[in-house]
């Protein structure tokens, strides 16, 4: 099944007393945050990362774009950790720098041009090779390709689906918890829970 949910659900709930003040502040700030001018990534790195992320999670929401590169750039600028990393990986900042450089190496080796200049089908083939851990390029010796893919994609997904626009896309309204949830049986929805449209 392919489910689709109406737009605007989370944004509307944020205007109501169904969310706590703490929840409203956190989500509204994320929703209204302006696009970040990268300070960790160089302009060419930010451009490449945008090209990659646009294939990992394509965005076509007319309500706006989720600034995933900005979320990653902010974390790396502050040198913040999520509490762990694979011992086989270099430190996060190095991992991103090296992984981006290596992605372009693979693109050139496989299709003769940098990643952003390739048609999307070829971009996807480059990403498949990285995910499988078998891409060409000498820089991958310094950063395991499959782990780079996993870490980058997990962070991308975290940034996308913690954003109100991403939450609306999957019909998530768990933040509207002030009235408590009393209908916990299967197929039993409360009025504020969006129904899929198909």
């Amino acid at each position: 099944m392919d489910y689709h949910y109406p737009a605007g659900t989370v944004r509307a709930l944020l205007q109501t007393d169904d969310v706590t003040e703490a929840t409203r502040q956190t989500l509204t700030e994320r929703l209204e945050k302006p696009r970040r001018q990268p300070t960790f990534f160089q302009p060419d790195e930010a451009e490449l990362l945008t090209c990659i992320i646009d294939r990992l999670l394509p965005q076509d929401n007319p309500a706006g774009r989720i600034d995933i590169v900005g979320v990653i750039d902010e974390r790396l600028t502050g040198n913040q950790s999520d509490g762990w990393r694979y011992d086989s990986m270099p430190a996060d900042r190095d991992a991103y720098r090296l992984g981006l450089k290596a992605t372009d190496e693979s693109a050139v080796a496989l299709y003769g041009a940098p990643f952003c200049e390739l048609p999307t089908e070829q971009q996807d083939e480059v990403l498949n090779a990285i995910q499988a851990g078998t891409p060409p390029g000498i820089t991958w010796q310094q950063v395991p390709a499959d782990r780079f893919f996993e870490e980058l994609f997990a962070e991308t997904v975290g940034a996308y689906y913690s954003h109100p626009l991403g939450q609306e896309e999957i019909g998530y309204v768990g933040m509207a918890d002030v009235p408590t949830w009393q209908r916990t049986k299967l197929n039993d929805l409360e009025a504020r829970e969006p129904r899929p449209i198909n």
């Binding site: 969310v19 706590t20 003040e21 703490a22 929840t23 502040q25 956190t26 989500l27 994320r30 913040q80 950790s81 999520d82 509490g83 762990w84 990393r85 694979y86 011992d87 086989s88 975290g158 913690s162 768990g174 933040m175 918890d177």
Partner: peptide
């Protein structure tokens, strides 16, 4: 909890020990 715990996963990552550990 009322003030500091939004119903938001990212907003609660302050509850985790985020000093980096190496997993081998």
């Amino acid at each position: 909890p009322k003030k500091d715990f939004p119903t938001d996963e990212v907003g609660q990552d302050k509850l985790f020990w985020n000093d980096e550990r190496l997993s081998a």
